[in-house]
Design a protein around this nucleic acid. Structure first.
Lengths: 190, 190, 190, 190
DNA sequence: GATGAATGAGACTTCATTCAT
DNA sequence: AATGAATGAAGTCTCATTCAT
């Protein structure tokens, strides 16, 4: 009856499952077989089902993890900006990092929507949103970020970042997209 | 032994099937059931399979149709530019129109990839590509379109246009994305 | 679009499935695997599911069939009684016949209850009930059937008839049970 | 190497498991999940399996318990008859009591049969059988119980007693069934 | 001894595709 | 040529049993 520790191996398995699910969903889309996720995590299906009774539960966990990571990133960005870093540059870099993992974000959302499920970890999401908003305001004060840019724009762009393409495509996409956020036109080469 | 003409109703069925498939794929993603497509087209599965022996064949037809339509659009754009319209403006509008139907493009590609199939209607694709390239060159001559913009950029953007969101989101996305293609910065509001 | 015949083979399959389901449920209890029922019917699972999308649908069909058959039997009994046969004897024989197939009745009811489903074919059930009631009344007029016997008693007995045992056991059970319905004690042997 | 005494809590657990299994089987049929039985007993599955390595072992224990209880009852009946009680009345009451718990008997048998297992506790069974037989003979000497009634009839009736129905149904069933065991017809009411 | 997490075979169900009508 | 029933492989999920803690 001792309710104590949640058992070391169970915790490890849970983590591996969420990680594997994120990767498989990103790679093969939101309809990956549960069995494949389980195999990728190195556990049997039954174990996966013990931790996540429904597919929705699993996706929710994946999305929550992603949201938390992005929130951490956003807060680190804000800290650097507060310490004097250039907001526009930091925001660009942040957008690039978010884009890299956007596949999972998108897939997670798609699955969640399919299953009629609401986002997820509200606190984490709010935390990230607050940090990004602060960075935008900082950049606007500095005069670098266009005055009408809002948090929704960052959502829109991160939701449309290229996925499953070459890093070069992602880099090029950033080049094309950043001028829309700033007050400066692209310089002609040379 | 007369290769009888393709009966009127067969032709009509074929069209209805392709149209229905496009719509269903756009609406429900690339994994829609064949039965649903058949039902939406108002035919029985057997009929669908007579026209398109495999799912790949069907998707190929859908994509081909889409490509042809886009190619027509591109050529119309080119004609207007040749008649004096502003290339940058026309290209922006074109991108907006393509984005509207991008869902099907993306879904088609996804399905094609899933099934290890190569694009499709090469001639049509080339036709559209040539027209878009010509428009880009025209805009660059006029000094409006940034000199390093290429056809690949248009592909990249059309592949990442927001899908399944509000028209407002699409409009905003265009606002954000166009400055990256041109030589002008966004104007501060007011 | 011709809604005409329900296709000969489909009808045949449907019948075979219901028959097989009845037999399998009677033999192995209400939890028989769907696959086993399908195999016993000589069809693939998919076919079974086409006819009966849920297990409940299948059980309902089985019960309905059983109820219809019993109702027919009851009406035949009533006809014979009207034609002068002895009601008590006919009722006894009827009870024996019902008992023979009671397994399916019981199993069907159990499954239906499990799935929170209501009986079934009300009209058929009423038809049988009316006939049996009439027979009881006839027997009571003749003085053979005990005056307080009701339809509920027949239900009770048919619900508790021995199942899955030897015909001898069934015969013996009838011997033990009939005196409770009549006005006569069992005769001592010899 | 001392065959340590069966620890107090182990003994208690064993009892609780058998009791819970009996109740769950009676309530939900012979296919109850092992986990549910364990939960009802307040132990973990592992503990259940330590006491009863297979499901058959568990069912056997449940049935043995039931048989022992019935045997005790039968012997008490016999004692009362020996002390002058009316055998027919005692037998009727006994049948009623057995019927009340017949669900478990039936379920146990069903499970045992499913698993190809033979009855169980031969000595207890014999003990009960002997007592019931003696009561029958006593009643036959008294002239109340029909001369051809045997132990097998009691088995047959207890195996077909109504289960999971109202007490009223059970009472009515006794009314219907007892005349078959005795030499007297049912009296007309009034 | 007790616990509860892990396992994996097997049951249930769906759906792309085939084929008799 | 069209129809819709039949097929069966593949996916989802459950649960009896094992085993590390």
């Amino acid at each position: 009856m001792t309710r104590t520790r949640p058992r070391a191996d169970a915790v490890r398995n849970r983590k591996r499952i969420v990680a594997a699910a994120g990767e498989q969903i990103a790679r093969h889309g939101p309809e990956v077989g549960i069995d494949e996720i389980a195999a990728a995590a190195g556990v049997a299906v039954g174990t996966l089902y013990r931790h996540f009774p429904t597919r929705t539960d699993l996706v929710a966990a994946v999305v929550a993890e992603y949201v938390a990571r992005v929130a951490d990133d956003a807060e680190a960005v804000l800290a650097r900006v507060a310490a004097g870093a250039r907001a526009a540059d930091e925001l660009t870099a942040f957008l690039g990092r978010v884009a890299e993992t956007a596949a999972i974000h998108r897939a997670g959302k798609a699955t969640a929507r399919t299953l009629g499920e609401e986002p997820a970890d509200r606190p984490c999401e709010d935390r990230g949103a607050a940090a990004v908003s602060a960075v935008i305001r900082a950049g606007q004060s500095e005069g670098d970020i266009h005055p009408d840019v809002t948090l929704a724009d960052i959502y829109l762009l991160s939701a449309t970042a290229p996925t499953g393409q070459s890093p070069a495509a992602l880099a090029r996409w950033l080049v094309l997209v950043v001028p829309g956020l700033t007050t400066r036109a692209r310089r002609a080469p040379g």
